[in-house]
Simulated assay, not measured.
Amino acid sequence: MTDAANALRTKQKPLKDKYRSDPSSALVTLTSTGSLDAGLTCSLSAASAAKKVAGLHPAAGGSGFDATGELCSGDMLLESLVACFGVTIRAVATSMGIPIEGGSVTCQGDLDFRGTMGIKGQDGEAVPVGFKSVRLVVRLEVGEEHKGNVDKLISLSERYCVVLQTIRQGVDVKTEVEHVGIGGETNGAGEGGEQTLDNDEVIKLQ
């Protein structure tokens, strides 16, 4: 077993012991907050000074990163998968004693923008909103003696990658309106009531 594998196991052992004896301690709530800016952007909070600003993809009428520095949330989803899978591969490889000299993880997602823009198909059918398919392409630089363990490495990485498993299995997402109005005043939703829009009205707002 390599020194890196021993170091990782030493760090993880007390955590694993704690989670086995007290399963509730393993439940952690991760939070991400975005501020709704003027215009069609949403600024994400970050610990660093540089904030990330999400906007519309050019295929949906946005200006794009090259023009304004605005990030497409679809790209950010793929980046999140790449980041999580890449870190997981590194951790699993370390535990397995497989030195990774280099490589890359690339994520490709097929997205039909008609869905999010409320455009129906040629036969009048609704076009699904969201990615139609997502592909992970992994390139690894490992020694000849470790190539036989790469399939197991990838399989375990898939199994333990949080973002990958969340996407594959799906998760219940609920939207809650915490406040609507200015200075504590409510306006048709939240505490003061409920406001609903039909599909056509929602499309006009996009």
Rank of each mutant, 00 (worst) to 15 (best):
V202M: 10
E178Q: 12
G97S: 12
N187W: 05
K120A: 05
G39I: 02
T29K: 05
D123H: 15
S32Q: 14
G124D: 08
L8W: 07
A49N: 06
V92I: 14
T33K: 15
V129S: 02
G170L: 13
D17V: 06
T186V: 11
S43M: 14
R114A: 08
S24H: 10
L77Y: 13
G184V: 12
G69R: 04
R114M: 10
L27C: 05
K13G: 05
G55V: 01
C72V: 03
V129Y: 05
S133H: 01
E101R: 14
V87H: 07
A60L: 11
G102R: 14
V180D: 00
N149H: 15
V138Y: 04
T116Y: 01
A67E: 09
G170E: 09
S48Q: 08
A46I: 01
K11E: 15
E178W: 03
T10L: 04
F65S: 01
G69I: 14
L44V: 03
G62N: 09
H146E: 12
A60R: 10
V137T: 14
T33F: 08
G121F: 13
E70M: 07
K51T: 09
F131T: 00
T94F: 01
V180I: 08
S25K: 15
E158K: 14
S73P: 06
I98S: 06
K132V: 01
I98K: 00
R159Q: 08
P99A: 10
V127C: 05
D66V: 04
F65L: 05
D112Q: 04
E185V: 13
G188H: 09
I203W: 13
I167C: 14
Y19K: 00
L30A: 08
E141K: 15
L136H: 11
K147T: 08
L111T: 02
G39T: 04
D151G: 07
G184F: 15
A91I: 05
K132D: 04
R20Q: 10
H146A: 08
M117I: 07
